[in-house]
């Protein structure tokens, strides 16, 4: 196998090596790649779409169709994991384990048994002993809201600075995943359960595709945001800017939900118990 691998990579390496001497010099502003389409974007993005961040303008408007499918890719990854891993039929267990958070004692409760008084301090666990770490829980609890706020900033400010729906969505998803890691999956489900995550991911992409359809119904081509001008009470150029914001919000929602749902399914191998 090693030998085969060496032969293959030498062939691939040789093939890639062959073309490289004819490449334009690295960092050359006069290279052909920088002279054909890309100057158009740099010189016209602001007057076409009123978005100073050209990457955002190209991503969500000029090549917005790519981006819609990119969101669909991440959506299908989320659905694929759910489809492959989710276990719907649970083994019925006769006993359940609960941890008393203050003392760390684990209780085993037989079927039909009830928790003692003050059951708010008990938490269901799956193995005999799971550590309870107050420092991690409290710290992450403090951090999570700020992370979420930052995520919203990244989504909203994608027009003017590096950022946008994908980045913000991932950060927002990371906040929820942080919460799920520092506590456990069952607690995370109380904040954002499986169905809500699925619904949010579908709704996010649907917001994107729906905006495109709306443009089509208003007489433009698919995703031609300038046709939204009458609906948004602005001119065609600002309508493009607003259209970009709308689809970025959709992207953010979808990416957040898919990241969380991927984590739910991968970390618990589809069982949706306490997770990692």
């Amino acid at each position: 196998m090693r030998f085969l691998a060496l032969i293959t990579i030498l062939m691939v390496g040789g093939l890639l090596f062959y073309g490289t001497p004819d490449f334009p010099a690295w960092g050359d502003p006069e290279s052909p790649a920088s002279l054909h389409v890309s100057p158009y974007y740099i010189e016209h993005a602001v007057e076409d779409t009123a978005v100073p961040n050209i990457v955002t303008a190209v991503l969500a408007d000029y090549r917005g169709y790519d981006t819609m499918f990119e969101t669909a890719v991440i959506f299908s990854a989320g659905i694929a994991c759910l489809f492959l891993l989710r276990i719907y039929r649970r083994k019925s267990t006769t006993t359940r384990l609960y941890r008393h958070n203050l003392t760390g004692i684990t209780l085993r409760i037989a079927k039909g048994g009830k928790l003692p008084e003050g059951s708010a301090e008990f938490e269901r666990i799956d193995s005999l002993w799971v550590p309870y770490d107050m420092i991690i829980k409290v710290t992450s609890r403090l951090v999570v809201p700020f992370v979420q706020l930052f995520a919203l900033y990244v989504i909203a400010h994608g027009h003017h600075s590096p950022g946008g729906g994908f980045q913000g969505g991932v950060i927002f998803g990371a906040a929820i995943i942080l919460y799920a890691i520092s506590n456990d999956l069952r607690r995370a489900f109380r904040r954002l359960n499986e169905k809500a995550a699925l619904l949010a991911s579908a709704a996010g992409v649907l917001l994107y595709a729906g905006t495109g359809l709306m443009c089509l119904l208003l007489g433009g081509n698919f995703l031609d945001y300038s046709k939204l001008a009458d609906l948004l009470y602005t001119d065609a150029i600002m309508a493009r800017s607003h259209g970009i914001l709308i689809v970025e919000i959709g992207v953010g929602l979808a990416v957040m939900a898919v990241m969380v749902s991927l984590y739910y399914n991968l970390s618990s191998a589809g069982r949706h118990d306490e997770g990692l």
Binding site: A72, I79, K195, L206, A209, L213, L216, N221, F222
Partner: peptide, 24 residues
């Protein structure tokens, strides 16, 4: 005039509606 777009958009939009519909 929109046929080339619609041929992809119909199944794509339907995908999300199917998931939402199946949740119901």
């Amino acid at each position: 005039a929109h046929f080339p777009g619609l041929v992809i958009i119909i199944p794509l939009v339907a995908a999300f509606l199917i998931l939402i519909g199946a949740l119901l």
